[in-house]
Structure formats: structure tokens, C-alpha cells
Design a protein around this nucleic acid. Structure first.
Lengths: 245, 245
DNA sequence: TGCTGTTATTTGTGATCACATTTGCCGATC
DNA sequence: GATCGGCAAATGTGATCACAAATAACAGCA
């Protein structure tokens, strides 16, 4: 293992005995592995180019080969992982063309999701208030992470902020598409922040997003989301994303 | 097996001996199974609600459980298959909301892909001519299928027509997204055609698409693709898609 | 020291087994 | 005749093994 970056912050060390059904909660192990890997991808805890081996993941997550295999397969199917020529699988590298495609797709999908969320919440004032509080809380944690210079926490909270909003749209299909895009960009946020520092993250547009929701202004919301995406994607484009972290 | 619809038109009956490496061509078996299933989904050869079991697919494709398992897992990861409450997996059923999301996404993605293809081909007159010929050929086969009333062939050629165009954009990320959408709608084309007959398919906009490419007219192309999508999606919406075929 | 060819290890893939859960079926009961 | 209960078959999941291919490590030579 040695110098290999950890994918997750070690399992919460089973609090009870050792023979319990692995805190299974009736969710399959391959599902848990998938979820953790997805989360690690989106919040940029995995470096571009890194090769994921079945046995390696299995060892790190303390499961047998089978669940690791299935989790990796699922991620690869969603485009989050890339097949090398020889059947191995790795975190995809970025190209200018791919970055441009992702940017274009995000610029349509995410404002659309945000707007749908807003429209749906117009009829649900209670849910709307709840979402606003949630967004504000996440954004506060996010700002704190920036001030601390904690890149990992930043990526984490940033994705939480966006997906909390998008999830409120209840548009599962569109959400799926966006998620697959975030899994592709995630690994590069880490690289960018490593190069430019957290200072480049201070001028996001989360405040405008929250404000637009408060004011029931769909157009302003779309524009705020749009600007936030542009801000993030242009940071990546400005960085040398072709090299690995 | 009995009354169970066949997913594919029986393996081309190994022409030689029986011990050859399964015509492997260095492509993994799970890959072959995945490819066939994907194709079956897109061209509507699988009915909504149908449950796919690992052993069932394995038997039908004459492979062991493992490749079937991985193929199913990958399709599920892309949203083409749906998890029932009890870990089983089936062709998803459609809802009005999901159909609306798919329609919206397609209406942005596919005109974009078409336009990108057109722009890219502006610099490649040879490829452009080749694509035009290919599209015209497919469209001819498609019309023939309609006249024959052959719904399966129609769906097949229709997807080929669109993806031949989109693939020319070389936009792999966007293409991935569109493909996942087609896998979700595919199963319902069969249902629609079953209800409305092939007569409802005659007024597609393929001719306009070809013409717009010939005339280097991006706006006309976008509009033609848009109309073609509307035509198809409204047919689904008009049908009773909540029931299974 | 730098390169090369060989060996040892790791890895993906497919197969098969075990087990708990679920599904489908059939007969008993009201 | 419809409903319920229980039993048998089918299914998803995880584990483990075998094998070929690919990667890494290393020794020998220039």
C-alpha cells in the first residue's frame, strides 16, 4: 500500500463485536464499495491516471474480489473509469475535447435541474425552506474549508451543495447524467486546487444561487448556476489538466 | 424458455468446430453479452418490465453466469435496467416524468451532436460524403422496413441512422449520454409500434436531416433533428406507455 | 551506468460452489 | 371459488480457484 493515496478515510472501525453482519443494512457489499468509490471520484480523492485493480480495491475496502469487481465495472460503465488497452481500468485522463463536451453538457443540464427544482419547490414552501437552510449550512462549511485550505473538504461540500439543489428537482434521469459528468471532472478538481491553491475557489456563485431561490427567480438561478460552472470549468481549463496530480 | 421473447436472433451457429476459442477476437465475453444486450435495448427488442436474471441471460447467450452478471451490472449502472426492491433487475417501466426528462435531454443533446458532426465534417469533405451515403443507405433500408411493417428492423435502422450521424461528431462523452437515453426509450418503441402500427413512422425527418447536411446548414440540421425527436417522443407519449407490450 | 531479455508477480476473466432470500406453485382451508 | 400457507425451484450475492495475459522486477551484458 505504502505511498498509495487512500481512497477513503478508513472504515469507521466497527463499534461493536466483530461478527455482526458487517453493518449490512440489507445493502449489498458491492453497492457499498460502489458508493464509496463514486463519492471519492466526485470529491476528487482519486488522481487521474491511477489504475484501479480488482484485488487492490478489494484489499483497501476489506472485501473479497467480487464486490470490488462489480463496483469497478459499474463505474466504468458510467464513464467514470477508462479502459486501458489491456483490459485494465484507470481514472480517465482529460483532453481538451472531453473537457469542452463536459462543460457544454453541464451548462445545459445543471441550470435545467436547478430551475426544475425551483419550480417544483414553488408548491412546497416547507421543502423549499428546508432546502435553503441546507444549502446555507453546506455553503458555510464550504467557506470554512476554503479558509482552512482543505481541498478535500471543499470538493466534498461543493458537490454536496450542487447535488442537494439538483436532487430537489426529483429529475432522476437528468440527475444520473449530471452525476456521470461530475465523476469525470471530480478527479481534476484536486489537481487544479493543488496547482492554484484554494484561493481560486473563493469567488463561487453559491450566494447568488441561494438568493435566486429565495427570490423565486428562475432566470437568475439559471444564470448563477451557469456562472458557477463556468468558474469551476475555466479553472480546470486554465490549469495543466493533462498532467496527473 | 417457451413463450419468452428471444433477445437476439440465435448465435450465428459456430461455423467451424466446437473447440475454437468461442470466436473470441480478444474481446471479453462479458463485453459481447453487454454489446448484444445494449443493442437489443436500443432497438426495442426487450419489453418493459421484463426481468433479467443472471442465469437466464447466461443460458440464452450460452455463457457462464459471470459474463452475464457483469453485463447486467453495467447496463443497470447506465440506467437502462432498474432495480426492483429485492435486488432483481428488470427493464424499467416508464413514467410521464421520466419521459419528459428524456425528451428534454434528447432535445438538447442530439441537435448538439448533429451540429458538432456537421461542423467537424466541414473540414473533411471525404468523410462528409461517406457519411451522407451511409445515411441515405440506412434511410432506404428503414423505409423498406416500414413498408414491410417490420417493427424490429425499423427500430434497428432508426438507431443506426441517428448514431451514424452522432458518431461523426466524435464527441464521446455526449454520445455516452445519448446512448444511455436511447437505452431507456428503446423498449417503448416496440410498444408504440405495436399499438399504433408502422404507419405512424412514415413521417420522420430523416430526409430533412440529410438535406441539411448536404447544404451545410447547422440551424436547419438542428431543427430537423429536433423535429424527428419530437415526432418519436410524442408517439410514445400518445401511446399508453405505462402498460407493457 | 544504461539497456535488454528473462523470470516472477500481479491482474483480469471465467467457472463453480455455497448460502440466504425470494419467487412461483400447489394444495389445504374457509 | 377465492385465499392463505408452505414447500420446492430459482435467484442474487459473495467466495474461491484456475489460467492466460500483462506488468514489474531483476540479473546479465555492453
Amino acid at each position: 500500500m505504502a505511498a498509495l493515496e487512500k481512497i477513503y478515510d478508513r472504515k469507521p472501525s466497527k463499534e461493536g463485536g466483530d461478527n455482526e453482519p458487517a453493518s449490512d443494512g440489507n445493502v449489498a457489499m458491492h453497492e457499498q464499495v460502489y458508493e464509496r468509490l463514486r463519492e471519492a471520484l466526485i470529491s476528487g480523492r482519486l488522481s487521474p491516471g491511477r489504475v484501479l485493480s480488482v484485488r487492490g480495491i478489494a484489499a483497501e475496502f476489506d472485501v473479497s474480489a467480487m464486490p470490488a469487481r462489480e463496483a469497478i465495472r459499474r463505474l466504468a460503465a458510467r464513464g467514470a473509469l477508462e479502459f486501458t488497452g489491456t483490459r485494465r481500468v484507470s481514472i480517465a485522463r482529460m483532453t481538451e475535447d472531453k473537457l469542452d463536451e463536459i462543460k457544454a453538457a453541464r451548462l445545459w443540464l445543471e441550470p435545467t435541474l436547478a430551475e426544475r427544482a425551483l419550480i417544483r419547490l414553488d408548491g412546497q414552501p416547507r421543502d423549499r425552506k428546508k432546502l435553503l437552510r441546507e444549502l446555507e449550512k453546506i455553503d458555510a462549511s464550504l467557506d470554512a474549508a476554503i479558509r482552512r485550505g482543505d481541498a478535500n473538504q471543499y470538493s466534498q461540500y461543493n458537490s454536496e451543495f450542487h447535488f442537494a439543489l439538483y436532487r430537489a428537482s426529483e429529475a432522476t434521469v437528468l440527475l444520473d447524467l449530471v452525476e456521470s459528468l461530475w465523476m469525470r471532472v471530480g478527479p481534476f478538481m484536486r489537481v487544479v486546487i493543488g496547482r492554484l491553491g484554494t484561493s481560486c475557489l473563493t469567488d463561487d456563485h453559491h450566494k447568488e444561487i441561494v438568493q435566486a431561490i429565495e427570490e423565486h427567480d428562475p432566470d437568475a438561478l439559471r444564470e448563477a448556476v451557469r456562472q458557477d460552472i463556468l468558474h469551476g470549468m475555466d479553472n480546470i481549463a486554465a490549469s495543466d489538466f493533462t498532467a496527473e496530480g
